Amino acid sequence: MTKPSGTPRAVALGAALREVREAKKFGLRELSRALDLNPSLVAHWEAGTRIPSIEDVSTMLGFFRVIGEPKRRIMDLARHLRDPNWMAAGEAELTPELTTLLQCEQGASTITNWSLNIIPGLLQTPDYARAIFEVGLTPQQADARIRVRLDRQKILTDADPVIYSAIVSAHAIDEPIAPDWVMSDQMDHLLAMTGRANVSLRILPRQQHWHPGMSGSFVLYQYRHRNPIVLLEQYSTTSFLSSDKDWGPYQRLAKLLAEEALSEEASRELIAEAAR
């Protein structure tokens, strides 16, 4: 049985099943014929918009002879697909939650990002990203993370780019995360990105009072045909929220922060000043 989905686990499972199929060099129709399935149904599974049964997932993995840890990980996703939220922890370069993040971004029509302390990942330069990743990671791991980050950024510049709205705290502009020349280049990059019609960047000035955004950064992914997903990232834990009671407050918080933020023009002036 299938039903409309779009939960974080369904998105992660779909990505995992597609990776298995492509690794075995099977086309979508070729696999569908081999397993006597409707190609559009399999496409929905891979997109995370429909839920396959545990038996269907097991059959597909058996067909491709997937065993060991990869099978255990995928079957664990299949057993908990209907959970609307997902908290995951990991340290590998391409963890399941990072794969899910990539899928959330690729399918979104609109992304709203509130960033409290750093420049959002989709707007980071390689040098700025390296200043973050080189703390606690090996050079090889940092390189892998940077490659993934740069690849992610293509959703802002491809032929049909996502609508991206970022509200960034003034702390992120002022914080000397990297050497001066890196920070200056980063500010120049922000100015260049704000010239794109699909990108909105606004700075939230330092507040004289507490506001809910101080509780932490978040990303809100919105879609044309399924519920939004909220991403929360901490030091070693990533949470995806997709139940109505969870993403609704973040929509309201994004609106509240937008009301307090500088205009786009005033934000560009502040960023240009920081670039000098």
Rank of each mutant, 00 (worst) to 15 (best):
Q106G: 05
V135I: 15
T112M: 04
P139M: 11
W114T: 00
L102V: 14
A142K: 06
I132C: 05
E134N: 13
T112R: 14
I111H: 02
A129C: 08
R130S: 02
E134M: 14
P126C: 08
L116A: 14
I132H: 06
E105Q: 15
Q141S: 14
L116K: 03
P126L: 09
A142V: 10
P139Y: 08
P120E: 06
Q124M: 10
A129E: 04
C104H: 06
A131G: 10
I119C: 05
I119T: 13
T112E: 07
G107T: 10
Q141V: 03
F133L: 06
C104W: 01
C104I: 01
P139W: 11
A131N: 02
L137S: 13
W114K: 00
C104E: 12
T125L: 09
S115V: 00
G107W: 04
S115Y: 00
N113H: 13
Q140V: 12
W114Y: 15
I132E: 03
Q140N: 09
L102Q: 10
L101E: 01
G121E: 09
P126F: 08
L123Q: 03
Q106M: 10
Y128T: 07
G107M: 14
I132F: 08
I118G: 01
Q140W: 02
T112L: 02
T100S: 14
T110R: 15
